[in-house]
Design a protein around this nucleic acid. Structure first.
Length: 735
DNA sequence: CCTGGGATATTTTTT
DNA sequence: ATATCCCAGG
């Protein structure tokens, strides 16, 4: 490409960015603060490598954290180079190695149709293991076991070693046998979980040096985004793949490491310098995103972390509006106030709804916010939460497709065996499983032999015969028809749409719509992908992140978790639920300091998403799941912000009457560091207050007794008369 | 032996 | 508020 074009490319960058881009040979570590243009460095680096002819598109491997980031990177490289030169190997660790494993599956002794198990699948396997191994069901927490197994895998500890190392009884007698069971189950079902995608890639490379060598040769340049969130297995993969050409460029920020609970290991940055002593280090410390006020406020909080490298982010966007802290009484008030503030911002600064993000620590917080936005008629989009692909009807169809691909997937098979209902109940399934176990064959094989099984009733036999026939027929068709054709024909033949249509309820209509949406998504996939097999579609779905399905062009307010917000930016950001116990989350306060520091980094990530205005909101009263109401103290993060950058709004009254009134006194936050101090503050429930109960309707409080969650209310209901209810158990709402 | 209704337990973040 | 579990009816 012309020298001119290359110079034009480099002209877009500042000095430090440019140095990081043109330093193409050898190991490079880029320490890039929030908003310092690290994605820019990566895309320009790829464009530079291609423009200078240093690399062909297929010789570049780029790892991102989400599929969306990968798409974005491809798009921007194309934009810079005018298309036709897009690297094919840009993606998440999981999708890249899933792809490599499909190519080489046979070398590891499983077939390339392997299923990818998500968390729900994993939990079901573990639950079954608890039953099969006759462990005490009440004493074992499946989630904890899943987590322990996942952690072990991410540092490459397999069942044998796990057993040897298991110190405490829980690991020795519970996790260890379950881990063994779990791995066997996955293998028998031709399935891999997320961790296996990485672990097996390592095993593949270790066992087949020729395979490793071919990929080492191929990938002359390797780039990694969000390096601070990689785990041990990912690090090893990078080391293996880059050892031939040693052109490995990683970009990260230790202050934005927020996936420690998933095995991300900050040591990866330290070890990078140890393993590549000749590595070049570039620091990007100029922030282009936020105002000085926002940046300094965020910096003052993150500075409280002990375990970090000192660095000083700066910006030339001097001044800016102060960060506004909004202290509401209840979560509902908080939501209403957020909506009011959005409306005011739209009016005052002529903003569009897509300029706003509302962030929270837990998905459960989204509901109240959603309701308030709905009432105000503001368009919004929720990222994550109840995921589309986790809805029952979607999982049903996907399970069918999975079984059609891979009949060994007993787990999906069991899910669909009686959907739509075909007269096969638990007893029949149990008997078939018994047959499978005693004969040492997969469940599907047992079902194929149903004719010769006297213990199965005639009606059930007919159902099973039917199911087996359908699956085998579609399994055959896989080669001839596209994924979309198979899915449509299958849904048709099973009468699933019919089923929901006949039900006629609101819920059934939703489900029907979701099915149609799924079929449409498969059709789109077939149109855009080169290799649009059913396997590839299922893989893509399994590896989808919440953020991947976010439509960033819609003019809507975005609601999402702080984790999902990583890497994004918005003119106006609300961080909600800033209460001790919620953010930072209670569990992080009980564990060691590192967990609290990770929460603080999460706060830092959230705050640095804002370009022009940051709001921090909290409520004194919040319901955790449907009934229990907790009273909380302001988050310590609020106290840690340098007060020069903050203004405070505190709601004094309960709302609507005359609007909220505010006092701007920071002392109101002064420290109550413990979460469950339980000082009796203002409760929303007092004599004379009108309230609503879902079954008794509206009423007025006559008497209040007790404190906190044991508070008892005597209420005179308009229609049901006088009743005494315990607040903890009754979903009573103030009006 | 299957089905459906009601009771019960369960929420941290996610590839 | 939702998914899973348990029991009674068909």
């Amino acid at each position: 490409m012309a020298r001119q074009a290359i110079e034009k490319l480099l002209a877009d960058l500042n000095d430090e960015q440019r140095r990081a881009v043109v330093h193409t040979e050898g190991p490079v570590l880029v320490l890039a603060g929030a908003g310092s243009g690290k994605t820019r460095v990566l895309t320009y680096r790829i464009a530079y490598l291609l423009a200078t002819g240093a690399a062909q598109p297929h010789e570049i491997l780029a790892m991102t954290f989400t599929n969306k980031a990968a798409e974005e990177m491809k798009r921007r490289v194309e934009e810079l180079l005018g298309g036709g030169q897009t690297p094919r190997w840009i993606g998440t660790f999981h999708s890249i190695f899933a792809r490599i494993l499909r190519r080489e599956a046979e070398r590891l002794g499983f077939s390339r149709d392997f299923a990818i198990y998500d968390e729900t699948d994993q939990l079901s396997v573990i639950k079954q293991g608890i039953r099969d191994l006759q462990l005490s069901e009440s004493a074992v927490e499946p989630k904890a076991v899943r987590h322990a197994i996942s952690q072990a895998k991410s540092v490459l500890i397999f069942p044998d070693e796990f057993e040897r190392r298991a110190g405490d009884p829980w690991r020795r007698d519970v996790v260890s046998p379950l881990y063994r069971y779990y791995q066997r189950f996955l293998r028998e079902n031709n399935a891999l979980d997320f961790d296996d995608l990485l672990v097996n890639a390592i095993l593949l490379f270790e066992q087949c040096p020729d395979v490793l060598q071919s990929y080492q040769e191929r990938f002359r340049y390797i780039l990694v985004d969000e390096y601070q969130d990689t785990n041990r297995a990912q690090y090893l993969l990078l080391k293996l793949l880059s050892s031939r050409h040693r052109n490995l460029c990683v970009v990260g920020d230790d202050d934005q490491s927020i996936y420690g609970w998933r095995g991300a290991d900050i040591r990866n940055i330290l070890d990078f310098q140890k393993d590549f002593p000749d590595c070049a280090i570039y620091r990007l410390e100029r922030n282009y995103r936020s105002t000085e006020v926002i940046l300094n406020a965020a910096n003052s909080v993150i500075a409280k972390n002990k375990h970090r490298w000192d660095k000083r982010l700066w910006t030339d966007r001097a001044g800016g509006e102060k960060v506004t802290v909004v202290h509401a009484l209840t979560a509902e008030d908080e939501a209403r106030r957020v909506v009011e503030l959005i409306e005011a911002e739209v009016y005052r600064h002529k903003r569009g709804f897509k300029d706003f993000a509302i962030l929270y620590r837990t998905n459960a917080q989204s509901r109240v916010l959603e309701q308030a936005l709905q009432q105000a008629g503001i368009a919004y989009e929720i990222v994550g939460g109840v995921r589309f692909f986790e809805r029952k009807e979607i999982k049903d169809v996907l399970s069918y497709l999975r079984v059609v691909c891979n009949p060994l997937d007993t787990f999906s098979l069991r899910r669909i065996v009686n959907f739509p209902p075909r007269g096969i109940g638990q007893v029949t399934i149990a008997r078939l499983e018994e047959v499978a176990r005693t004969q040492g064959i997969p469940l599907f094989e047992a079902m194929r032999r149903v004719e010769s099984l006297p213990e199965i009733g005639a009606a059930a036999k007919r159902g099973i015969r039917n199911l087996v026939e359908t699956i085998e027929r579609f399994h055959q068709l896989r080669g001839e028809l596209s994924a979309a054709e198979i899915a449509t024909a299958l849904v048709d033949e099973l009468g699933i749409r019919q089923l929901y249509k006949e039900a006629g309820t609101e819920e059934a209509r939703d489900r029907l719509n979701n099915i149609d949406e799924l079929l449409y998504s498969i059709a789109m996939f077939c149109r855009t992908e080169e290799e649009a097999s059913l396997e590839r579609y299922l893989e893509q779905v399994a590896l989808l992140a919440d953020i991947d399905s976010w439509d960033d062009r819609a003019n809507a307010v975005t609601l999402m978790t702080l984790h999902s917000a990583k890497g994004l930016e918005f003119p106006v950001v609300f961080i909600t639920g800033l209460e001790e116990g919620l953010f930072p989350l209670r569990t992080s306060l009980e564990g060691d300091l590192r967990e609290l520091e990770e929460e603080r980094r999460l706060f830092y990530v959230g705050a640095t998403r804002a370009k022009e205005k940051l709001y921090l909101t909290l409520a004194t009263y919040r319901r955790r799941w449907s009934t229990e109401e907790v009273q909380s103290q302001p988050s310590r993060f609020l106290l840690e912000i340098d007060e020069r950058y903050v203004e405070v709004e505190r709601a004094e009254s309960f709302g609507r009457r005359g609007g909220l009134r505010y006092a701007a006194r920071r002392e109101e936050f002064e420290p109550v560091v413990r979460y469950d101090g339980g000082s009796p503050g203002a409760s929303p429930f007092f004599e004379g207050r009108r309230v609503r109960h879902p079954s008794f309707g509206e009423g007025i409080i006559l008497r209040v007794s007790g404190q906190g969650e044991r508070m008892r209310l005597t209420i005179l209901f308009d229609e049901f008369g006088e009743k005494t209810l315990v607040l903890k158990y009754a979903p009573i709402q103030p009006l």
